[in-house]
Design a protein around this nucleic acid. Structure first.
Length: 261
DNA sequence: ATGGCTTGCACCGCAAGA
């Protein structure tokens, strides 16, 4: 089963990119973030016409997450969850669904703006709630994958210029400690299970020709639970959609899991 | 140098992203 994550920065603007990419990648499930549209505007019919069913949690202007599932795969309708249970939040950042017996969580982690800011405090509170919920969720669903835009570059090798970024939002020690708390639950960073080229990133700023200069960060991740990690056979970043006309500033990450094996 | 782009919303400049 191929699963993927992609922050599309407006599904309205990026719908054709999503459709094109699904057609090429043929992933079984695609987790989307930053839909930036309300549920009534979600392009469910268009995606269905291209062979994918959708589950989504949207809102006006900001945030919004979805899970797209290729036709023919089983989805447990009764256990779809929106938001982090028990964490009151008007921001739509989480949706979870069980696909072929694998619990998929599509998450748009808060940006945080800057260490010390109110938004940073919210980010840390959100991360605490996510950690505690995942600890429970993993008991219920041993085969669990957490896919999304984490807004955290876990290590210096995930940063194009670690010196320039030192201590800043997305790389600060507090955020990295939160990432490590997820790892301490037993989660495995899919991308780092394999030898990878250096300077591989998933996000590049729109400004300053950042993509052309490869001035990026690796902030989109697929973490796998201990029960799922041994079934991982490949993980890659697909930089191609970032080169398309009017692209998202993020590009997809894909993990291939062999469930039968 | 706190800019530089892109989005949505609401009206032509602002917030927010990362």
């Amino acid at each position: 089963m191929k699963i993927a994550t992609w922050n599309v920065n407006s599904l309205k603007v990026r719908l054709q990119h999503v459709i094109d990419w699904l057609g090429e990648s043929k992933v079984d499930a695609l987790c989307l973030q930053e839909l930036k549209l309300t549920d009534d505007k979600f392009p469910r019919a268009e995606l269905e016409a291209h062979g994918y069913r959708s589950w989504f949690a949207g809102q006006k202007t900001y945030n919004g997450v979805a899970i797209l599932v290729r036709d023919g795969l089983s989805v447990d309708e009764a256990t779809v969850v929106r938001n982090i249970p028990g964490f009151e939040d008007p921001q739509q950042r989480v949706i979870a669904a069980t696909v072929e017996g694998v619990r998929l969580v599509s998450a748009y982690f808060p940006n945080g703006q800057a260490p010390g800011s109110e938004k940073f405090t919210y980010k840390l509170a959100w991360l605490n709630a996510m950690h505690d919920w995942l600890a429970q969720e993993m008991q219920q669903h041993p085969q669990l994958a957490l896919l999304g835009d984490y807004n955290i570059a876990p290590a210096d090798r995930d940063v194009h210029d670690p010196k320039a970024w030192e201590g800043q939002n997305l790389v600060s020690p507090e955020e990295r400690a939160q990432f490590e708390r997820l790892i301490a639950l037993g989660f495995v960073d899919s991308y780092r299970q394999f030898e990878q080229p250096e300077k591989m990133f998933t996000w590049w700023d729109y400004r300053m020709f950042a993509f052309r200069r490869n001035a990026g960060l690796r902030i989109d991740h697929i973490l796998l639970s201990p029960a799922l990690a041994p079934k991982l056979v490949a993980c890659e970043i697909d930089k191609v959609p970032r080169k398309w006309e009017q692209p998202s500033d993020h590009t997809p990450v894909i993990a291939d899991i062999h469930l039968a094996g």
